[in-house]
């Protein structure tokens, strides 16, 4: 018992660990809430695209000394608009449009990193830097989480209706274009916040896995949200500890844990698990 206690408390003497745990819980929770909407809306691929497409925005924002969120937002939105344009105006299908736009944006980001005279660490952007959070990044993560939480709370019922039946939403006078961009803005903001913990490559896992896990466990949206948050926070905390004790990648640990929880759920879920459905 003493050893277990030590395992959890000893790292807390370091401020960077306290910060890392705090940020990973914050990011895990907001990503989990958003993941419920993304999985139900069928936006998993869209989330993947946006998370990669923000790279040039993040790099330029570093270079221009403007908030990372702004750069990420501009390019995240730009990628979605370009995908929409290609889909609407050419005979190229949506999945191909998504694939070619986000890789193009991502590649542009790589070129910028290698050419801009700055000390950006590509590895930190791609895979996060949970154990080395700067004060500015800490504040940025808190601000983004608060904004995204407020947005998701106020519009939670409208967004749910938008995911479920956008035509009905339109006919009763809801502004579905607004809801579309609201969800997109929150997505871009959350990706910026999550970039700190897990990086832009693995953020998509934070945005799909908790929601998918919870989806297999309940038929009630509120419960789904709570379960998603619980599984994400559990993975974030345990993953951060594991990465400390085994000197492993924090992003890797968190995402592996989330995936393990999903696989367990997929097999053992009471109603929708593989065993129950046999």
């Amino acid at each position: 018992m003493e050893i277990v206690w030590q395992w959890f408390t000893a790292p807390l003497q370091f401020q960077f660990m306290v910060q890392a745990l705090f940020v990973s819980v914050l990011v895990g929770a907001i990503c989990a809430v958003l993941s419920c909407y993304l999985t139900l809306k069928g936006w998993a691929l869209m989330g993947d695209a946006v998370s990669h497409a923000v790279l040039p925005g993040v790099v330029l924002a570093y270079g221009l000394q403007i908030p990372l969120a702004l750069g990420a937002f501009v390019f995240g939105l730009g990628s979605v608009l370009l995908i929409g344009l290609i889909k609407a105006r050419t005979r190229v299908k949506e999945d191909a449009a998504i694939g070619l736009v986000f890789t193009g944006f991502f590649a542009f980001g790589l070129v910028l990193i290698s050419k801009l005279p700055s000390n950006i660490d590509l590895m930190h952007i791609l895979f996060g830097n949970l154990l080395g959070i700067s004060p500015e990044n800490l504040i940025q993560t808190i601000v983004i989480t608060v904004i995204a939480t407020i947005g998701l709370f106020i519009f939670r019922k409208d967004l749910l209706l938008f995911c479920f039946d956008p035509v009905h939403a339109r006919t009763i006078g809801l502004n579905t274009a607004f809801l579309y961009y609201l969800l997109l803005i929150i997505l871009a903001l959350t990706i910026v916040a999550a970039q700190q913990t897990v990086g832009i490559i693995l953020v998509i896992s934070m945005l799909i896995t908790p929601g998918s896990t919870a989806y297999l466990l309940t038929d009630n949206f509120d419960r789904m949200t709570i379960l998603a948050v619980l599984s994400a926070v559990f993975s974030s905390v345990l993953g951060t500890y594991l990465s400390y004790h085994f000197d492993a990648s924090p992003a890797g640990c968190i995402v592996v844990l989330q995936t393990l929880i999903f696989l367990m759920t997929m097999i053992f879920a009471p109603k929708y698990g593989l065993i129950a459905r046999r």
Binding site: L40, K157, D158, L160, L161, C163, F164, D165, V167, H168, T171, I172, G173, L174, Y215, T218, D219, N220, F221, M224
Partner: peptide, 27 residues
């Protein structure tokens, strides 16, 4: 008021009968 085709509805959506009917009142 619009009633969609059966195929156009995601019947796996985590939502109850009561919640769907309540969505008629959102406006």
């Amino acid at each position: 008021a619009y009633i969609p085709q059966t195929e156009a509805v995601d019947w796996d959506f985590p939502i109850s009968v009561y919640d769907v009917v309540m969505m008629g009142r959102y406006g």
